[in-house]
Nucleic acid binder design. Sequence first.
DNA 1: GCTGGAATCCCACGAAAGGGGGATTCCGGC
DNA 2: GCCGGAATCCCCCTTTCGTGGGATTCCAGC
Lengths: 216, 216
Amino acid sequence: MSNDTDPISVAVVEDVTQVREGLALLISSSDGFDAIGAYDSAERAIEAFATRPPDVVLMDIGLPGMSGIEATRLLKERWPSVQVMMLTVYEDDDRIFRSLQAGATGYVLKNTSPTDLLHDISTLNRGGSPMSSSIARRVVETFHATPPSEPGEEPLTKREEEILALLSEGFRYREIADKLTIGIETVRTHIHHIYRKMHVRSRTEAAVKYVRRTSR
Amino acid sequence: MSNDTDPISVAVVEDVTQVREGLALLISSSDGFDAIGAYDSAERAIEAFATRPPDVVLMDIGLPGMSGIEATRLLKERWPSVQVMMLTVYEDDDRIFRSLQAGATGYVLKNTSPTDLLHDISTLNRGGSPMSSSIARRVVETFHATPPSEPGEEPLTKREEEILALLSEGFRYREIADKLTIGIETVRTHIHHIYRKMHVRSRTEAAVKYVRRTSR
DNA sequence: GCTGGAATCCCACGAAAGGGGGATTCCGGC
DNA sequence: GCCGGAATCCCCCTTTCGTGGGATTCCAGC
């Protein structure tokens, strides 16, 4: 059980010496924070964590050898309670999402001020997910429902939607027909129409489109 | 083109009079903010926006009549540039995600301090996505990849993963074989292994599992 | 009352996909 | 050096799909 006076132990993984040491200095010289390690590669950091894992890791993405994203995945596997905050210059969707998928719970840009960074570390440690504002916006935007109909996509009828749903679950024509108590030929006809409207040529393509559309 | 001196116009939608007026007072009495309206229902707010939509809307969720989430959807449809921030006591996943899907770009809890709230409004207006820290964490957690292996799921080899990805895009065996410059029989063998490991019996089932796993 | 879309059913044909075998080569770990 | 997994290739046989027609019924909107 920790209390107010327990400093947050922080490790830095960053290959550029100057940045790494600057961060370590900032952290160790701040009240309530304890820099317990600064490493120039993910491999070295992981090695050191075997002895003592930190509360929080500031992780660069562009590292020599194992990337910061890969390292995050490994870290979270071995030490699930370690909180990883990506600290990087990248703000492309791909890196953001792969980082979060890997288990990072914070994602801040390197242009963050020292004060804000310390604040973010402490937020992370308290169970929040600090993100630079542009990052947060990107994350939130992935939730926005896609417009009712994609350009050029004709809407499906009720019955077609129904059949598409079953199709996506892998049911055979025969099974769909039985479920809906209609003939298999009817099912085939509906599916033809679905394919034409969705511009696909196989059930798999249709299913993938459907799943992407429904599961956000 | 706005500049530093243009106040951010804010509307409040909140059915509890005391809260509504408190917010309006806070906003109108703060530098850089302009309370242009406070409404006790979504319907009334929408009516008023026809005359002048605000930059930012603080939206309660639990409203009489149309819910704040429904209202957000409508608002974003008619005035896409309006920034909606949910301001609520709820922090269940369902309300959070439905709000974000509806187009909200901020989600803060009502226990937020006045200072922080003003800061959040301004962050929202600058293109960020302010979220209370517990909310941000929930949002981020939805990105976490499902544990490396679901119970009873054997891991796929590199080659199998590769083929599964192509399979999910709807490529035929022949096309996959050509892309990877291997024989079609090899493709078939890999796919058999994939199906066995994933406990599925068709490419569609495999594709759906794959898509759900990768696209969050 | 006509028109058109939705939903239903039918047929035939060829192309894919799925299931079950078996086999070889390569490589890394014990 | 042996073993096992990964990756490769091969064959046979059955089922399911995808495509391209055509047809009927029902109902709502004009």
